[in-house]
Amino acid sequence: MTTKDKYKKVAYYPGCALEGTGHSYNRSTKAVGKKLGLDLVEVKNWNCCGAMEVKNIDPKIQTYLSSRVMSTAANEMDMDVVMAPCNGCYHNLKKAEYDLKNDEESAEVVDRLSKKAGHKTYEAGQVETIHALDWIKDSIGEEGLAARVKNSLSGIKVANYYGCMYTRPRHIFPEKDQGPGSESTSKPHFMDDLLAAAGAENVDFPLKTACCGGAHTLSDSDTSTKLVLNILKAAKLSGADVIATECPTCHSGLEMHQIRAEKTLGEKVDIKILYFTQLLGMALGLSPRKVGVHENINDSIAFLKEKGLG
């Protein structure tokens, strides 16, 4: 079976953020999947992966939480691919996979906790965890996407922002940096590739993998505001109209601190922030409402109308 077929039906792990602040990412991911004929089967009775917080209390608890999600997909749903659109979830599942494969102690703790919790222990290798970017890139590809575009994104200048958790640390992503066709951890390009196929003009954006301070967005807001301001300004200076995002923490961090910078530092950077799935969905002919543009905090409706997408 080729990669393309394998990703046509995947276990879908939305995670907590996509049921809250990242609701429009959830909506647009599902809408794009439907439009492209890709089947998403939500992981049954899933739990939080531990986000960026639980590891600071105990890293092995985070490994257990992530392993339970993969165990459900593999052992109760008989799925072999888990797709997570959230960078945090994606990162944690990948990290758990790495630790369970390489660290005996992690495997022992997970086995002990799984038995006590009353479910099958996840064994490394039972599922493959992918990001929403891998999912569309490998099942449909740029050519397939270009052929399905109804409203080209031409005339929209996009800065693609990937954040931290999608590429770092590199050892938990063994499939990346494997030459042509694979994703790069230093200069990721999957989102650029997909949006270019949909007609967008990608700008040369130096802060693709800069940090938005998401882990401390509330506990050290001043730092986060400075970091977000760097990203917004760099995107604006690169000539972008829109920052495309692929992580709910980054996305809401950018939106929140765009406002906070305006209110506390008097620095207003006028740039739109949209999930890449929202841009792709509109290119495939879905209305802004169908991909949840109205649920974003930053208002891009007038801009999208002007560009012929509204």
Binding site: I57, I61, H216
Partner: peptide, 21 residues
């Protein structure tokens, strides 16, 4: 503040399995 946040967050997951932001 960061440790407070980690604790509040982890307590909620331990209790319910999920986070409500």
């Amino acid at each position: 503040p960061s440790m407070h946040f980690d604790e509040v967050f982890t307590e909620q997951i331990v209790k319910t399995g999920k986070i409500e932001e």
